[in-house]
Every structure is written in C-alpha cells, then in structure tokens.
Design a protein around this nucleic acid. Structure first.
Length: 607
RNA sequence: GCCCCAGUAGCUCAAUGGAUAGAGCGCCGGACUUCUAAUCCGUAGGUUGAGGGUUCGAUUCCUUCCUGGGGUGCCA
C-alpha cells in the first residue's frame, strides 16, 4: 500500500477505521482515473454481506458516464492488488455497492493496538485544531425549583460538555441563571405584601442588612408561583413588580440585598439537585452578572445607529433583506426602563467574547426559544458585538418533555413535577428492584444504596438521552424507571457482569493477553463495534447529539452480551485464547464505561 | 395571518441521499446444575400523514396540502 497524503478530513484520521478504509478505497478510485472523493467508506448497512461498504461507484457513474458496476469492478481489482492483506473479501453487489470484509488477523491487530493504548483514550487522538466552546445549559430560574423540564437541557448539555472535552476541545459550561428579570420583582413585591423584614423595602434605608436569608428555598418555591399568578390577573400588582424589577436593576440597595439572599439559597439548592444528576458547571454566572455591561452596550448600539427609540422602548431592527417573512425588531430596553432577556443575552455575548474569545457558544435551551435566539444572534452579528467569522453562536435546542396531551408535562393537579421528586421516585424504584435480587442481599447497606442511586439515575438519564435532542417525547414514569430492555440499567448490567469476570480472573491470577482473531461471529461483531468508537464520537459531536452515544453504548452492550453467552471465558482451557478474551473483555468494559461517562452515567462495581 | 417544529410498527422512539426502514415495550413461543436470567434466542407487526417534484436511488432534499404542537415587540 502506497503512502497516502495526509488527509485534512475528519479529526481522528490516525485512528478512525472508516478514514483508513476511505483512504485506501479513495486511492483505488484515483488509480482508476476517478476522483478520490468517491471513495468514502461507511459501516455496512448489510452486516451479513459486509463489514464496510463504499457507495461511490453509484455516485461516480453519471459524471464519468460509466456503468456503476463497471466502475466497481475496476476499483475492486485495484483494491485486490493494493490491500489483499486488509480485506478477506471484496465484492460487488446490487447496482454497484463495493462490499468489504476485513481480514480477521488485521482486525484483531487493530483491536489489539487500541487495547494497548494506555492513555485512557482508546486510540482516539485529541483533535488537531481544538476549539474554545462555551456551553450554556440548565438555565434555571432563581427561586423556582427545578422540574422535569430542566432534565433535558441539563443532561444533554452535560453530555455535550464531556464529549467535547474528551475530543480535546477547551470547554466551559455555564449555568446561566435566570436571576434578573420580572420574576424577581414579583417575589419582592409579594414579600413586601407579606410583611417580611421592613428594612429591605424601605427606600431610605441603605444598610446594613441581615446576614441570614429571610426566606428558605422552600418558601420561595411557594411565593414565586403565587406572585406570578397575581401578576397575571392583577394589573396593579404587575405594575409594582415591573417597577421593582427596574429598581433592582438600577441598584436599589434593599432589593439588591434581597436578591443576594435569593441567590444564596437558590444556588445551594441547585448544586444539590443538579449534583444528584451529575450535572456540573464550571461557571455559575447569570443574567445579573452582565448588568453593568448593558448600559454601555445600549449606548454604543444607539451611537452606532443600530438601536433606536420606538414607543418608548429601545429596539434593534433584525429583519434581513432576504427574509420574505415578518421579523419584528428585538426589544433591548422596555419602555419602563427595565431590561429583559434580550438585553442580558446580548450582554452575555459581550462578556463571553471579551473574557473567553470562544469559537462556539452552544445554547442548550428549549426549542421554543428559537425565534428569540435568532433575533439575538442577528442583533449581535449585525452590530459587531460578535464576529460571525470568529464565533459561531448556535441554539443547540432541545425538545420538551410532554404529557399525554402533547403539551409540556404537568402533574395531575396541573402543577409541575419537581426534579427532586422525580429523582427520588426513580431511585426508590431501584431500591425496590434491588431488594428482589438475591445476589445483592449480602452487600452492605451503604453499597446497596449506592447501587440504587446509580441504577436509578442511569435509568432516568438514559431514557431521556436516548431520544434525539431536538425531539419532544411523552413523559412516562414507568419508562423513566424501567430496568429492562434498552435502558440505562441494561448497560450497567453488561458492564457489571464483565467486571465480575475480570475480578474473578484477577483472583485466579489470570492476566489479559494479546487479542487474537475472533473465534466466532459474536466475537467478530464485538471487535468491529469497538473499532467504531472514534467515528461515533466524531459523529455525535458534529451532530451535537448524545442519542448516538446511547445507541453505540447499547449496541456495544448487546455485542458483549452475545459474546458473553457464546464463550465462557473463565472455563476456557486454551491459555492464549483465554488471555485474549480477557483482554477483549477489559477493553469492552473500559470503552463502555467511558461512553457512559460521556453520557454522565456512573457504573457500580457490582449490582 | 406569518414563522418554526413534528407526523415512521398497537405504544414510546431510532435511522449521517443508498441495498430488505430498525430498536425497546407490549403480544406469542423457547433457553438457567454454566463467568450475575436486570440476560439470551425466536415469531408476528409498516402504503414512513397525503399528493407532486429533484435523483441511478428519498423517511431524509424541494413543493402543495392535511393534522398536531409551539412561537409571533414590553414574561423568560
């Protein structure tokens, strides 16, 4: 095989099997006088016929005015000359699919080289050109408890963070709290009406204020919905709330002191609740953190002619000449002087560009905000706050979790189901399941509880992440806490059984050895699946879609479970074969656990 | 009105323009003296909402409808 030009395609060309095969087939196309771009190789969709396939002969037929099968024959003949050591079978099928089956020795050799990688990267090289990515997800509102709706943004964002970071990108996650808008004003007014400590509401008093928060997060959880409800029906209340919001933003000391208390109790609660889902943040910034950037930004926008007064509000036109549809302007300051999330989102971009100079900002936020982000992105690009050639602002939106009526989920009494309650229900279900299983009875109470936590969280997270990011789906507690079939616990179980073998092997003094060519179809499929990892990670990253990680983890677990059934490792008498299988089992569990880690799911030692 | 998103097996969901559209659940039927049966194997189940178009090839791209959901300058 001739030395190929280094390819700029793909980020893991050194280790991606797909890329290696594409390079080989592309060279064969070129040798036939056909553009190498037609040499793209994919995992075969017909696994009983091939491991990998190239469809390029079909695509090349027209421009080269040739019969696709004729092209296929020529390419095959070149491949047979150049790569007989790699392929055990090269065939042409149907209208012109080039089917490739890998030589078993070559296959095992590849797997062995991945197993021998002691860096913990499974042969996946960090990207050559790391990007700086800011991931904005979670977006909880201060004083509002997390509910089922926060599940998706939190765990999808967390997974994208872990994936991007593993691939070698520089990533910062920011919770971006909603802590500066009308809800805060509504709570302030409601608290004033309820005669909370007067010092906070006395405009002439400037401090000091009490150190202890006047409210708990539980009280806030009750006060906010009440205030929000009043605001909808009571115009006077609403006007007062708007005024309070505006005064808070302008710096009224008593309101600022109250706000600080809200933050203290809310952040502690958020850390606890997101922590239970293993959703973690690098930055705990929020809308309030950009307050001081807003006035200068608005002044500049006015000075540059992008922002102007209209009906008492300050707006920016974001309509594009290419738009056929209507596109109302973005309102950056309301007529009462308060700012909403349009201004804070814009100012946050000012801040992020200034402080981090990112290549990407991904907003993992509900898809219903698409219009909002479109306007914000246009406004910042148009006004020069962000340079479209430098930073890509993406609304990496997620769908909603709906009730049976197709609308965002509500409990039977019309309320929202809190995240904490949901998590506790799922873990409790896991406890019950655990109690039914004999093997765990001997474990300590602590270990059993740890297992229940991991099983419950795995069930919850996997059943959400397995759905495509952008799609809505219907909330089903049974499904969230199901432990059978295509679920989180299925994956844990596969990993745990594997670990059990390795533990027993270690006790018997058995060590992993060189991985040999597959002994059967089950093992062959497992080896092939392991080699798909780099391409899978690239693909999931490109699509910003963790469901592909779920898909891979599940298929890897299936492949392992079949292998497990077909070959009894510990009873194997051939020492080299046994050592090979131990190596394969070790690699499988390492890869499986790592992909689960990228999903934000932890694996217990045993269960 | 305008815009966005969706419509795939009984149900919940997958499917980077490729061959015979896949899983899980549910249904029916098999496999535990064997490294953990939270497992494995098998059967049945489809006009991919409808029509048109582009393409050698369409669930995927374009277009017109139908149905559902969402959004649409002073809530976020």
């Amino acid at each position: 095989m001739a030395n190929l030009d280094p390819t700029p395609l793909g980020t893991h060309f050194m280790t991606s099997l797909k890329q290696i095969l594409t390079d080989i087939v592309a060279e064969a196309f070129e040798a036939c006088g056909i553009d190498k771009k037609y040499g793209a190789v994919e995992v075969s969709t017909r696994r009983e016929m091939a491991d990998y396939q190239c469809n390029g002969a079909l695509a090349a037929a027209k421009p080269y005015k040739m019969n696709p099968r004729q092209i296929g024959e020529q390419v095959m003949s070149k491949l047979q000359e150049s790569s007989a050591d790699i392929f055990s079978e090269i065939s042409l099928a149907g209208p012109g699919f080039i089917n490739l089956r890998l030589n078993n020795d070559w296959l095992a050799n590849r797997v062995q080289s991945v197993a021998a990688d002691e860096s913990g990267r499974f042969g996946v090289e960090p990207v050559a050109d790391p990007k700086m990515i800011i991931l904005d997800y979670g977006g909880p509102n201060v004083a509002k408890p997390l509910h089922v709706g926060h599940v998706r943004t939190g765990i999808i964002g967390e997974s994208l963070k872990r994936l991007s970071r593993f691939l070698g990108h520089e990533v910062l996650s920011d919770i971006h709290m909603g802590d500066w808008g009308l809800p805060i004003g509504q709570i302030i007014v409601e608290m004033e009406d309820r005669d909370f400590d007067r010092v906070y509401f006395d405009a002439d008093y400037t401090g000091p204020y009490p150190e202890d928060p006047p409210v708990s997060v539980q009280e806030l959880a009750e006060i906010y919905p009440t205030a929000s409800g009043k605001s909808k029906v009571d115009e006077e209340f609403r006007a007062r709330a708007q005024k309070a919001t505006s005064e808070l933003q302008e710096g009224r000391p008593g309101y600022r002191a109250l706000w600080q208390h809200f933050m203290t109790v809310s952040v502690a609660d958020l850390k606890k609740n997101y922590g239970s889902l293993q959703v973690e943040y690098d930055l705990w910034l929020g809308e309030a953190d950009v307050n001081d950037l807003i006035n200068p930004m608005v002044d500049q926008l006015k000075k540059d002619g992008f922002a102007y007064l209209s009906d008492g509000a300050i707006i920016i036109d974001v309509k594009d000449d290419a738009d056929k549809k209507e596109m109302e302007p973005l309102m950056v300051v309301r007529s009462n002087g308060a700012v909403g999330y349009e201004a804070t989102d814009m100012a946050t971009i000012v801040q992020r560009v200034r402080d981090y100079d990112p290549d990407f900002v991904w907003y993992v936020v509900d898809g219903r905000q698409q219009h909002h982000f479109k306007k914000v992105f246009r406004a910042v690009y148009k006004s020069g706050i962000a340079n479209p050639d430098k930073v890509s602002l993406e609304h990496t939106y997620n769908g909603t979790i709906n009730g049976p009526d197709g609308k965002p989920f509500k409990t039977r009494d019309g309320g929202v189901m809190s995240l904490q309650v949901l998590v506790e229900m799922v873990i409790d279900k896991a406890r019950q399941r655990l109690a039914e299983i004999d093997s765990t009875a001997q474990y300590s109470a602590e270990e059993q509880e740890d297992i229940a936590q991991k099983v419950g969280i795995a069930a919850l997270k996997f059943s959400d992440l397995v759905n495509h990011r952008t799609g809505d789906y219907i909330f089903d507690l049974e499904r969230f806490s199901s432990f059978e079939g295509r679920t989180g616990p299925y994956l844990l179980y596969a990993a745990v059984r594997n670990q059990s073998i390795l533990r027993k092997a270690a006790e018997e003094g058995l060590a992993a050895g060189t991985i040999l060519p597959p002994a059967g179809d089950e093992e062959r499929e497992l080896q092939l699946k392991l080699l798909e990892l780099p391409d899978l990670l690239d693909f999931a990253f490109d699509q910003r879609a963790p469901n592909h990680l779920c898909d891979y983890a599940y298929n890897l677990a299936i492949a392992f479970n079949r292998f497990y059934r077909a070959h009894h490792i510990l009873n194997e008498e051939d020492a080299a074969q046994q050592a090979s299988w131990l190596g394969l089992a070790q690699l499988t569990v390492d890869v499986l656990k790592h992909v689960l880690y990228l999903l934000g799911i932890s694996v217990p030692e045993r269960m």
